[in-house]
Nucleic acid binder design. Structure first.
Lengths: 268, 268
DNA sequence: CAGTGGTCTAGACCACCAA
DNA sequence: TGGTGGTCTAGACCACTGC
């Protein structure tokens, strides 16, 4: 059969006689078929062919569409699932990941109260927006978010409180161009995690983040908001979040009061 | 063919007419074949049939031994590889993971110097053992390590320095029974990471760890060792490490000076 | 060259879910 | 009951390693 020869060609290079859809990479590097399929699926996710929360076509359908076996599609989807880009549900289908669902809420928040140390839910925190302004991005923010100096940016400051005690003071920076119309009112009114709002209102879906942690002393402002003495030790968490297109779109500088909470991390 | 019937039986329950090796779990829960194979391989790893750094039998050999297809063995090994219990090397074989190799050194240390912020190697740190004593485990340590109160424990204190500046002060607690003969001399003489010593000298291999991070103020002792003022903010990292048998065997309380270093964490 | 892990296929059956 | 993802098989060929 020549079907195998076709498969091999697909493996070795981006074929000219391609079946329908093709990545534009001119990279001559070897890439397995399932990686190519994965890239094609990601493109469809990026273009919005399937939106967050929706089902994507079944493995059989995708196999037919891409003219590969079900097993190859399966391996592609397996990786998308471990990347948290899709969620598989046996008997129902494969769904585009979203921040708007219960079990994925606060996916990036690692703060745990001392109290429910083992067992028990992570207590819901109450949000309070301090302010939300549009300004020209400072140099360091512009560098982190890949903006030109002078570009517009949104600055949000907010606190999170657990049982009345303020625990987190966040300063959030977003590219102004992507978040037109974002205001303190929108933020305050919205129910659910901020990342869910970003997703549904602005089409920005965060897939991963990178954090830098340090211990710092509280300055006057932080001390006031977190109700601690000036100079008290605080956990500084600088988070850079990346969008579906793998571009940095959020810089979040958090100060955590770790007297009754801690930052949990699992190492494997 | 009845070979399929046999497979199904293996899937549904731990069979009485088992092929050679069996897990002892009486749990009636459904478990896929490849999970059973994975459990069997883990048992062989625990009993030392294949030791850290060694090759395990090829997929074909294991398939013959367990009387399943190569694909099933492959899926079992895939999970062991993502669990960091084995390492696959194309063309060479599958190797039992070890802390004694270059690319896995300092697997659990997330501290990164500000300097080489992107690109560049993580600079080697110099170790210095402050002291190493055998004492009766304090209550909190005993609880964390599943010891009886009054059991013997090893307490190690040491520092890590980068380019002459002390950065980390660790207090390490180990069960006395597992680490007979561990002394300050052994620790000082050993070249390579401490976890490699644990592995080669005491047969204790860490597979995962759980950390709790907080910001704290330096007390007098910490201030002296880390050469910071009393009250300076330090990153407190309490790590509980688990052995191959998934039992907690190390409690490590670290204080990190995060002026020129930060704790890096990737969220997915 | 032989042996290893890595990819791909085709087809079977199972577990789960909803209508 | 039919459709989805999940498991398992058998066999082919590819890529990498070391002799």
């Amino acid at each position: 059969m020549d079907s195998n020869a076709l498969r091999v060609m697909q493996c070795r290079m981006a074929p000219a006689t391609a079946p329908r859809e093709e990545a534009q990479d001119a990279a001559p590097a070897f890439s397995p078929l399932y990686q190519q399929i994965k890239a094609l699926i990601i493109r469809s996710l990026q273009t919005g062919e399937w939106r967050p929360g929706e089902v994507i076509p079944s493995e059989m359908e995708l196999a037919a569409r891409f003219k590969v076996s079900q097993g190859t599609v399966r391996k592609a989807i397996d990786e998308l699932a471990t990347d948290n880009r899709v969620v598989r549900r046996q008997g129902k289908g494969t769904f585009v990941a979203t921040h708007s669902e219960q079990h994925t809420q606060y996916r990036f928040l690692r703060l745990v109260p001392d109290a429910l140390d083992s067992g028990g839910e992570v207590g819901r925190m109450s949000r309070r927006v301090v302010d939300c302004r549009r300004v020209r991005a400072p140099a360091d923010v512009a560098r982190a978010l890949d903006l030109k100096s002078g570009d517009s940016a949104v600055q949000i400051r907010r606190t999170l409180s657990a049982s009345g005690q303020p625990v987190v003071l966040d300063e959030i920076w977003l590219p102004g161009g992507l978040f037109k119309g974002l205001s303190a009112e929108r933020l305050s009114q919205y129910r659910g995690p901020m990342y869910a709002l970003f997703e549904t209102e602005f089409g920005v879906h965060m897939i991963r983040a990178s954090e830098k942690l340090r211990a710092v002393a509280a300055d006057a402002a932080a001390a006031q908001w977190l109700e601690v003495p000036v100079g008290a030790p605080l956990l500084s968490v600088e988070r850079l979040s990346y969008s579906y297109e793998n571009k940095p779109v959020e810089l979040r500088r958090g100060l955590y009061h770790t007297e009754a909470h801690y930052y949990r991390n699992e190492l494997n």
